[in-house]
Write a protein that binds this DNA or RNA. Structure first.
Length: 650
DNA sequence: TTAGGGTTAG
């Protein structure tokens, strides 16, 4: 047996004593061997080298030791992942096979976890396949690895086989299998699988485990099934801060920002023993950003400072986004400037913030500054910067960036990137070029890409291309009412009333309804919401009266109502009455009544701002001498003195 | 031996 004596003997533990024998020099790492050391000594030495992080010497010693212990391999595997060295990991694996440990289920579990860490899923699978004694740990490790790698269906198939051979699941299995349901593209079929597993959990009495139930809340959240998620959450016998955070995140991510803030309020008021943490705060900030609830966001920022959560990177990135999305770009920039360290997500937050405010060149500048600072762009960096180009009409710059993605940064364009390019070209009325991009795509264009094209067709009223995109969209997303409405809008603008009727019939036949646009405004920390067809809102009469008065006055100043988007073949006066009731005009009127002199009116809209509201708000900003900030579904419009920051390009 | 929620875009 041979042991190595490290030159840094002071680092070694007391058991690593060396006999006074003539020593040999290792050619590789200049450490001295002790030929009399026992296997036990060698194992101890390798283990201590691993614990010290000295993987090179541990491996060198391993190559001379034919009888390493199970625990030695365990520490070596851990050390390889800590040092992020796949090559060393494979060396350990080979050694382990040569020494007859290939059927050890404990080490198989460790190896599967190790290969999962290195994203080497084929190797993880091979280890599982070769292990005959498949304990629940081995199964769980593979389920975890496959779920993380996005192979959800494979996990579910194996889970079925596992059940059929009578191999029992444990509480860990359920969490991994639930995760598998959302680790796949085939959402519809796997939602049903998730529901089946939910039933298994109830049947086998696992519904008291907080981890499993929280994973279940998260699974329903990721499928967009908010009511199922809240049902599970409400029935949980024990909830902790993670369960609350999962439910708040569910609301924040699924367009229920009001509910997210309300649940956070409940957490603060009704649970004395639970303290929100950084993860909770990120979702709460997202909800504030979605509602443009600046005052609430400021309060949350104060809470974050008091709790010392202001140095956590995801929290700061969410703060940057919150301020920018509440119209306070300069505050977002200030938070970013004060960061001690930044990661790619922080940079992406700032890039997209400038993007939604229409500062395309500035967004490109930040993107370049990020690279100059040694931060490699991520796929989302490109989505952000291409989006910024699109809002600002920077077509050539966007095309260059798109090209550089693969050439300079080795990132293959995904569906999201193609959707950005289609949007960029489409908005700039280069629709044929946009269609050409889709034709030449190397991957299957999904609904996002066709949706971008249809959106651009709506802006430039291109009936022929819109029909082409719609055929694909109605097939890919048969229940998305928004696509039908866009096509109907295009027909209406083109005066093709038969087409409008046809699409409306299709919408009805599929049991779908047009989702009305909604606008919000925050006044004295309270959020007021408006929809155009709101008969129960007690303020409606007063707001309508004000809008009629304003409309008459503005017409004298040159305002001409744009009624071409009304989906009915009606007389001009009737169409005018309909567009005057749009939700953002109601919010503007409410803001005029309730804002202080010199105060900015901030409005958020759930859809794209319509042309009439855009023109109306420009006039109001001039003749009421008001600064109005409207965030629509895509970007900001900053109205001041009769002009909009988008330059009428949106 | 293994587990749950979050960051940026669309």
């Amino acid at each position: 047996m041979w042991a190595f004596q490290s030159p840094k003997t002071t680092l070694l533990p007391s058991h690593a004593t060396f006999l006074p024998r003539p020593s040999l020099k290792s050619p590789i790492c200049s450490i001295t061997l002790n030929p009399t050391a026992s296997t036990a000594d060698n194992n101890k030495l390798i283990q201590s080298l691993c614990k010290q992080g000295n993987l090179t010497q541990a491996l060198e010693l391993l190559s001379h030791e034919p009888n390493p212990a199970q625990h030695t391999y365990e520490l070596l595997i851990l050390s390889c992942t800590r040092q992020n060295s796949l090559l060393d990991a494979q060396r350990v694996h080979r050694h382990l096979l040569e020494n007859g440990f290939d059927q050890d289920p404990f080490l198989a579990t460790k190896l599967i976890n190790m290969y999962s860490f290195f994203d080497s899923i084929d190797n993880a699978r091979k280890v599982f396949d070769k292990t005959r004694s498949r304990t629940i740990y081995v199964y769980n490790a593979l389920f975890r690895a496959l779920s993380l790698a996005g192979h959800g269906e494979e996990v579910l198939n194996m889970y079925r086989r596992m059940n059929s051979i009578g191999s029992p699941s444990d509480r860990f299995t359920y969490t991994y299998v639930l995760k598998a349901c959302v680790a796949s593209e085939c959402f519809v079929s796997l939602l049903n699988k998730g529901k089946e597993i939910h039933a298994h959990i109830l049947r086998h009495g696992y519904d008291g485990y907080v981890h499993i139930m929280t994973t279940l809340v998260d699974m329903y959240a990721k499928f967009g099934c908010v009511s199922n998620a809240s049902c599970v959450f409400n029935q949980m016998p024990v909830k902790n801060v993670v369960s609350w955070s999962a439910m708040i995140a569910c609301y924040a991510k699924n367009g229920k920002a009001f509910e997210a803030l309300e649940l956070f309020r409940e957490l603060m008021l009704e649970t004395q023993d639970l303290c929100p943490n950084s993860v909770t705060m990120v979702s709460v900030l997202q909800a504030c950003a979605a509602l443009a609830a600046l005052e609430q966001g400021r309060l949350i920022h104060g809470y974050i400072l008091r709790k010392g959560l202001d140095s956590i990177l995801p929290v700061i990135s969410a703060l940057v986004t919150m301020y920018a999305r509440c119209g306070k770009l300069e505050l977002g920039q200030r938070v970013f400037d004060q960061m001690d360290k930044r990661d790619v997500v922080s940079w992406n937050s700032l890039i997209s913030s400038y993007g939604v405010h229409g500062f395309g060149k500035k967004a490109i500048g930040i993107f370049e500054e990020m690279i100059y600072n040694g931060v490699e762009p991520s796929p989302i960096s490109f989505v952000s910067v291409l989006g910024a180009c699109s809002h600002a009409g920077l077509v050539d710059e966007g095309k260059m960036l798109f090209k550089s993605m693969h050439v300079a940064h080795g990132i293959c364009p995904s569906v999201e990137h193609y959707a950005c390019m289609v949007d960029l070209l489409g908005r700039a009325n280069r629709l044929e070029e946009a269609a050409k991009i889709i034709e030449n795509m190397r991957i299957e264009p999904g609904p996002k890409v066709w949706g971008s094209l249809l959106g651009s067709c709506r802006i430039h009223c291109n009936v022929e291309l819109a029909e082409r995109a719609s055929i694909r969209l109605f097939d890919l997303e048969p229940t998305n009412a928004g696509n039908y409405v866009l096509l109907a809008d295009i027909y209406a603008e083109a005066g093709m009333w038969d087409g409008v009727k046809r699409v409306k019939k299709l919408l009805e036949a599929r049991g779908l309804q047009k989702v009305p646009g909604r606008s919000w405004i925050e006044v004295k920390r309270k959020i007021y919401s408006f929809v155009s067809v709101d008969e129960v809102n007690p303020r409606m009469e007063q707001l309508h009266a004000l809008l009629v008065k304003l409309s008459m006055e503005l017409k004298e100043e040159g305002y001409v109502p744009q009624t071409k988007v009304v989906l009915y073949d009606l007389k001009a006066a009737e169409k005018e009455r309909i567009v005057l009731g749009h939700s953002e005009k109601l919010a503007v009127a409410f803001g005029l009544i309730n804002s202080s002199k010199g105060g900015v009116i901030r409005i958020t809209k759930s859809l794209r701002l319509c042309e009439d509201c855009h023109s109306f708000t420009k006039f109001i900003s001039k003749f009421a001498n008001k600064e109005i900030l409207v965030r629509d579904v895509n970007r900001f419009h900053h109205f001041r003195d009769g002009v909009c920051s988008c330059g009428d390009y949106w």
